[in-house]
């Protein structure tokens, strides 16, 4: 019995809106299809439940990629959070999600009861989502999978601004997105991007911070070529 690969949907890489039929399962037999965010099965069809661009990851994983102002937590996402409250066992962190996230006081490299970090309300933290469930508050950690601090922890100085989740995904994409590549050739700066639509920028001079952050904010609606030309014009004015 031969098992043929499922034909990719004609809508792949096209825009879909709620209610659009993405795939007809009646034409497929003995095939496994993985559904990601923004899709659901309704009888013999796969339908979109949110507006965005339909993506396909080989062999057969479909999802809808969209850009929003709100963030839905997902395991292994790196996020930028703001401490809003401190409890004996947890820090309560705002990650732009439906609920506040918990950051356990022991979720730091070498974390013990004796060296609990002291974070004031308003502290900016770069962390990793370790638990995400629709009925529970998300849980964060400032360690990587091996228990090392890596790049996680408190972010001091710099400037943090909000963007859409789509822009933050673009900034974290590989190969490096044109805007960061163009800025990195001329300016020295540090950047931390959270998948929750927050970006932190730090540079030796405030003018550099302003240029970098403005360039990133404006880049959302520009193509790669447009991003490069915008950076060039910004740097001309700066010099």
């Amino acid at each position: 019995m031969e098992s043929r690969k499922p034909p990719p949907s004609a809508l792949v890489d096209n825009h879909v809106v709620p209610g659009d039929v993405v795939l007809d399962l009646a034409e497929m037999t003995n095939q496994t299809i993985k559904l990601g965010a923004g899709l659901r099965q309704d009888c013999d069809t796969i339908q979109a439940t949110s507006a965005g661009r339909l993506r396909l990851s080989k062999p057969s994983k479909y999802w809808v990629e969209s850009s929003q102002k709100r963030y839905i937590p997902s395991v292994e996402d790196t996020v930028l959070g703001v401490v809003v409250d401190t409890k004996p066992d947890n820090f309560l962190v705002d990650i732009k999600g439906p609920n506040l996230a918990f950051l356990p006081v022991l979720a730091f490299e070498g974390g013990t009861r004796r060296n609990i970090p002291k974070f004031e309300i308003g502290t900016l933290i770069y962390a990793r989502v370790v638990k995400a469930n629709s009925i529970m508050n998300p849980e964060l950690s400032c360690m990587d999978a091996t228990g090392k601090a890596a790049e996680f922890g408190q972010l001091k100085d710099g400037y943090m601004f909000d963007t859409s989740t789509g822009l933050s995904r673009m900034l974290l994409s590989s190969p490096t997105c044109p805007i960061l590549e163009a800025l990195g050739k001329k300016l020295s700066f540090e950047i931390a991007v959270g998948l929750n639509g927050r970006v932190w920028v730090n540079a030796p001079s405030p003018s550099n911070v302003i240029v970098v952050s403005n360039a990133i904010i404006k880049s959302e609606s520009l193509s790669g070529i447009g991003q490069r030309s915008m950076v060039e014009s910004l740097l001309e004015r700066l010099s």
């Binding site: 809106v17 709620p18 209610g19 439940t49 949110s50 507006a51 969209s66 929003q68 102002k69 709100r70």
Partner: peptide
């Protein structure tokens, strides 16, 4: 739909 709320 613009807010990304899941809808049938």
């Amino acid at each position: 739909a613009d807010a990304g709320i899941m809808m049938y």
